[in-house]
Design a binder for these strands. Structure first.
Length: 373
DNA sequence: TCTGGGGTCCTAGGACCC
DNA sequence: TCTGGGGTCCTAGGACCC
């Protein structure tokens, strides 16, 4: 008998802010949407009553709920809390999958001797998250990870849903197809056009059974693939001149380079993303022969891609850089290049140390900061 | 004062190789 | 005188998730 507990934090970013500032309790609180062109990243249930939801533009949220308290998004803080959450989950099982910053899957199979019945330990886990971190969470307990996730969503807020073995199909069948993770607006529409409205109707079709019920499980089980690191920014004011855009790229690349060296990996593929004012978005990528973690090499490719592909005259509202094809630092290259690259590596290591000690903005590549001085 | 930022996975065409 | 075919890499775009 397998048992999976899917843990999903309630209004996570808002809850973290509340844990640190009790004044925010019971109030309509909205995280995000504070900057120009910003969107809501988390809304308290009090704010949701007015129709505010995450992803909504800030100005719209302000119109719907003018009395809400708006807070800037503090990702680093939420990441710290996320680590604490997963430390608690790991106390209950050696097998914990991190599905996102605020969602985890705990494999409780075979933990009965230590922690009692899965239903009991699930209750305890949710209680602990609240008592030790001050964060409300919901849970779904099932023999199937995907179903555990679905019912955790149904149990919100602060609930625990339990699906006994054998009752899965009866429980899922009446739900709308969009309840299945991986079925978004497009797929839902396609299914509706074929008269498939509920999960039950989907389950009666073998082709769909395979196509839609499998990917989620596969994706979650196989895990550690070829991940990527990216940074992007929506500009407060759209840009049309190349040199300003290149400074933005410089700042994005610094962030990515730091993270590559932090993780001890190098990238083979560099991708830039350009979103124009009309929201047309293009990505352009280039694969390099020698994997790199050096800002200057990444930036050179990013600038080249930008110059080559930018439609002149069109204003740009977003720029992004992403690196992939990541591999551990044991890379191959000629002896000739080695000593020079070694010097660069030392230089970047020093830069990272200075940033860590004195803050991100104390040191930067000249071109990325030039205009601010 | 329209529409974030971090990702993952899938598809599909073309190049290239054996 | 038709024009194979299978595998892999590269690239671009899009759906989806939180």
């Amino acid at each position: 008998m397998r048992w999976y507990l899917h843990v999903d934090m309630d209004a996570f970013f808002v809850s973290v802010e509340r844990a640190l500032d009790p004044v925010l309790r019971d109030k309509a609180v909205i995280v995000g949407g504070t900057r120009a062109r910003g969107v809501v990243t988390s809304a308290s249930y009090e704010a949701r009553k007015y129709g505010v939801c995450s992803g909504m533009p800030g100005y719209q949220a302000r119109r719907l709920c003018p009395n809400a308290i708006f807070l800037p998004t503090r990702h680093d803080l939420y990441r710290e809390f996320s680590d604490k959450i997963f430390a608690i989950l790991h106390r209950y099982s050696p097998i914990v999958h991190k599905l996102s910053i605020d969602e985890g899957l705990v494999d409780l199979t075979g933990t009965e001797r230590l922690w009692g019945l899965p239903l009991h330990s699930s209750q305890e886990i949710l209680l602990r998250l609240r008592r030790e971190l001050g964060l409300p969470a919901s849970g779904g307990l099932s023999g199937n990870p995907m179903i555990a996730k679905v019912v955790a969503g149904l149990a919100k807020p602060s609930g625990l849903a339990y699906v006994p073995h054998g009752s899965e199909e009866a429980l899922l069948s009446p739900l709308p197809v969009a309840a299945i993770p991986g079925i978004g607006p497009k797929s839902e529409n396609m299914l509706l056009q074929q008269g498939l409205r509920t999960v039950g109707s989907l389950l009666r079709r073998d082709d769909f059974r395979q196509r839609f019920l499998r990917p989620y499980d596969q994706a979650r089980e196989t895990g550690a693939g070829d991940h990527s690191i990216g940074a992007e920014t929506t500009l407060e004011v759209s840009l049309s001149d190349l040199s300003s855009m290149e400074r933005v790229l410089g700042a994005l690349v610094e962030e990515i380079g730091g993270r590559l060296r932090d993780e001890g990996v190098r990238a083979c593929r560099i991708t830039i993303k350009i979103r124009y004012d009309d929201f047309k978005t293009v990505t352009r990528s280039h694969t390099i022969g020698v994997p790199t973690c050096f800002d200057r090499e990444i930036l050179a490719v990013a600038r080249w891609l930008l110059r080559k592909n930018l439609v002149s005259g069109k204003k740009v509202r977003l720029l992004g850089v992403n690196v992939g094809g990541l591999r551990a630092s044991g890379w191959q290259e000629s002896l000739f290049n080695f000593s020079r690259r070694h010097a660069w590596e030392n230089l970047y290591r020093s830069i990272d140390c200075i940033r860590q000690r004195y803050g991100d903005h104390t040191i930067a590549i000249a071109s990325s900061r030039a205009k601010e001085e």
